[in-house]
């Protein structure tokens, strides 16, 4: 899974070598785009975040301390970019709470067969706040303390946001399936 990034390549990027920058971009673009897609509302947003993130990486690569993996450091920059991107949208978070539970007939749906495409579709529909917490905890594997630190919230909020995020995910997933069947 992990990318093979040579320290020499990073050194060349620090020297602002255009070739090295392109090399680093080509090496990481897919993986990082995957991160962007997970944290965004749409593929257009993901594209913007990818671009912003790489610009930030090239301008700040001399600040990379050498501790920890380059990949992790880069990922963190993309996540921060996504957070900045949606900070404006925080107002909307409250609105998506009103989504209520769906009809009983659909409780039998299991997650076993959910595809990547469906997961992304659901994630993209979720409010940025919920999506971010779910991403950070479930996929990136951060602890609640770390998430609280990143999002400037307290640990309890992180925990409650996560459990609500899971519910919202299930509701959105059911809604996705329900859309087809709702004949009224």
């Amino acid at each position: 899974m992990s990318l093979q990034i040579e320290p020499e390549l990073i050194q060349r990027c620090i020297k602002n070598e255009a070739k090295a920058q392109k090399q680093l971009y080509d090496l990481c673009k897919s993986q990082m785009y995957g991160v962007c897609v997970r944290y965004s509302n749409s593929s257009d947003d993901a594209r913007d975040i990818l671009q912003e993130g790489f610009i930030k990486i090239f301008s700040k690569i001399n600040q990379y301390s050498g501790k920890g993996s380059v990949e992790g450091w880069m990922k963190r920059i993309f996540i921060n970019c996504a957070l900045e991107h949606y900070r404006v949208n925080k107002v909307y978070q409250a609105q998506s709470d009103v989504d209520t539970a769906w009809s009983v007939g659909f409780d039998s749906f299991s997650l076993e067969k959910i595809s990547i495409k469906e997961i992304l579709e659901v994630l993209n529909k979720m409010a940025p706040g919920y999506r971010t917490v779910l991403n950070l905890y479930a996929i990136e594997g951060y602890s609640h303390a770390e998430i609280a630190d990143m999002l400037e919230i307290n640990e309890g909020t992180s925990k409650s946001q996560l459990s609500r995020a899971r519910k919202v995910f299930m509701e959105e997933y059911k809604k996705l399936n329900n859309n087809l069947v709702s004949g009224r």
């Binding site: 899974m1 971009y25 673009k29 897919s30 785009y33 995957g34 905890y137 479930a138 594997g141």
Partner: peptide, 30 residues
């Protein structure tokens, strides 16, 4: 279960980004 499924499916998710992105980055870098 949801967390596990999400992690399993998306941990290594690496789609091809749209083509126009590099030119924007290159300009900013230059």
């Amino acid at each position: 279960s949801l967390d596990i499924i999400l992690k399993k499916q998306l941990q290594n998710y690496a789609p091809e980004p749209p083509s126009g992105v590099w030119s924007g980055i290159e300009k900013a870098a230059n």
